[in-house]
């Protein structure tokens, strides 16, 4: 597969998740394991530009695919801007869910087929798969809204 634009070989048994493959084998520790059951979104990465939860993905299923993690998003449309606005709008506190929030925001904005900027409610609904226990939700929505408009 390709990860963050580079071809990589990930030779793992089939029970290894994409998340563990990225973290333990490739040393990409930006994606986080918060629940390992697809319920928190901290492990969100982009697969061919679409956001997925990498904890429920088996690495073998993604052979030949293009994976982007937080470490590689700066070169994507909106990536660097989101990183900047998350800081400016205080869109995180502890920072543990942040990689997933940013990847998810990139995916969400790419999924839209409307040219009109998203409403705050639309952002909230679209981002609801990414939990933030610190409660930085307002700042996250601010950051995404800023980038999307």
């Amino acid at each position: 597969m390709r990860v963050n634009g580079e071809p990589v070989v990930l030779d793992v048994p089939p029970q290894v998740s994409l998340l563990d493959g990225l973290r333990d084998r490739l040393g990409l520790t930006g994606p986080k394991k918060g629940c390992d059951q697809g319920a928190c979104g901290a492990c969100t990465v982009l697969a061919d530009g679409e956001r997925i939860v990498s904890c429920l993905a088996l690495a073998v299923q993604y052979e030949g695919r293009e994976i982007t993690t937080i470490e590689g998003v700066a070169s994507l449309p909106d990536g660097a801007a989101l990183q900047r606005e998350f800081i400016r709008r205080d869109g995180f506190q502890c920072g543990f869910c942040t990689s997933g929030q940013i990847c998810s925001a990139i995916g969400m904005l790419a999924e839209r087929d409307s040219d009109a900027p998203p409403t705050r409610d639309e952002i909230r609904e679209g981002m609801s798969g990414n939990l933030c226990r610190c409660g930085a939700y307002n700042g996250i929505v601010d950051a995404i809204e800023e980038v999307a408009t």
């Binding site: 979104g41 679409e50 995916g107 981002m127």
Partner: peptide, 8 residues
């Protein structure tokens, strides 16, 4: 579900 899960 969520946007991520619907993509999978």
């Amino acid at each position: 579900a969520s946007g991520q899960l619907r993509n999978m």
